[in-house]
Amino acid sequence: MSTLVERAEVADGYRAGRTLPLRVELTRQLKRRRTLVMGAILAALPFVLAVAFAIGGQPDGRDGQVTLMDTATASGANFAATNLFVSAGFLLVIPVALFCGDTIASEASWSSLRYLLAAPVPRARLLWSKLVVALGLSLAAMVLLPVVALVVGSVAYGWGPLEIPTGGSLSAGTAAQRLVIVIAFIFASQLVTAGLAFWLSTKTDAPLGAVGGAVGLTIVGNVLDAVTALGDWRHFLPAHWQFAWADAVQPRPEWGGMIQGTAISVTYAMVLFALAFRAFARKDVVS
């Protein structure tokens, strides 16, 4: 009898794995205003920096320290690296928190979540589709910024080698390869923020709460990393390794810091993603 009931509840031809296809979810998210606004902001940043350098002149070193900012106008590659340098600590956190924190919470705030589940879309399938699309958009945001910066910098300052502030240079081809590695590391280091935002999105019906909570906790991590009294405990903070990618833009790259940072970030992220799936599987959805 129970078998007959179970069969009656499943429509003929229904396949759980075919519900809410990735292309459908991606199309929905690409059409949203916040996606377009975030893309416009990231694409505009290189132009803003180029105008700032044009008005203010060549960047100068401060307190005898030379950074990527001081070689920003040396070539298009330097300009792209500088854009990553000034945005990796905070600006690139925002799209990750936005795309991942606005996933489930936004559906709940629109009172459409229960209808999606009644479609029926299995809860795990719903989370998986939204997480993949959110991470894809986050990666696209991190690619968009340096690509636009490379184009703007090449037009403004020419196509040439990447001048290393501490001495030496990398050919344009090698610099492009290293920048790909840098983007991959920044994406990996932001997986903690993605996990936080995604988990919070399953716990609240307020998208702003999930996004703001993830950004706020990320800032707290940065503050804790600045507390030198913590000593070696700071090595367990993802924020401690967020600029380890600078080791990749050296004549002889060092991978130790990037490997440690990636391992810590991925570990925390996997725990947070697991908590999100566990919490949503037991959640009483009424929105």
Rank of each mutant, 00 (worst) to 15 (best):
G101A: 13
L275Q: 03
H235D: 02
G216L: 13
M38R: 00
A74H: 02
V285H: 05
G212M: 07
Q58K: 15
E254K: 08
V155P: 01
N222V: 01
A244R: 02
V155R: 07
A149W: 03
F280G: 09
R7S: 08
P122E: 07
M142V: 08
A263M: 07
A81Q: 10
S138G: 14
E254T: 13
A140Y: 05
M69L: 08
V155K: 02
Y268G: 02
S111G: 12
L20E: 11
A244F: 03
A52K: 08
N78M: 08
A210S: 14
P120Y: 06
R34A: 09
A279C: 10
D60H: 14
S112G: 05
R15N: 12
A244P: 03
R114K: 10
D225G: 07
Q250V: 09
A194I: 05
P165D: 01
A81R: 03
T73A: 01
P120M: 04
A140I: 10
V211R: 01
L272C: 00
A141V: 05
D102R: 12
L131C: 05
A134S: 14
T218F: 11
P161D: 05
H235F: 00
R178F: 06
V86Y: 07
V271D: 10
L98S: 05
K203P: 03
G168L: 09
T103P: 06
W245I: 04
V147L: 15
V152T: 08
K31A: 15
G61K: 13
A248M: 15
V133S: 02
A88G: 00
V155Y: 06
T174M: 13
V266R: 04
P161A: 04
L196Y: 00
G167T: 07
S2A: 15
V147R: 03
G13S: 09
I164V: 15
S154R: 04
V10R: 14
G56L: 01
T262P: 06
A54C: 08
L139T: 09
L135K: 09
L230Y: 04
S106D: 12
V220R: 00
D205K: 09
P120Q: 13
A229W: 11
L98M: 14
V155H: 06
T193P: 05
S201F: 00
L98C: 05
I55W: 04
I264G: 01
R178I: 11
I55L: 14
E6S: 14
A175D: 06
V215F: 15
L135D: 04
A172T: 09
V271L: 14
L191G: 04
K203N: 07
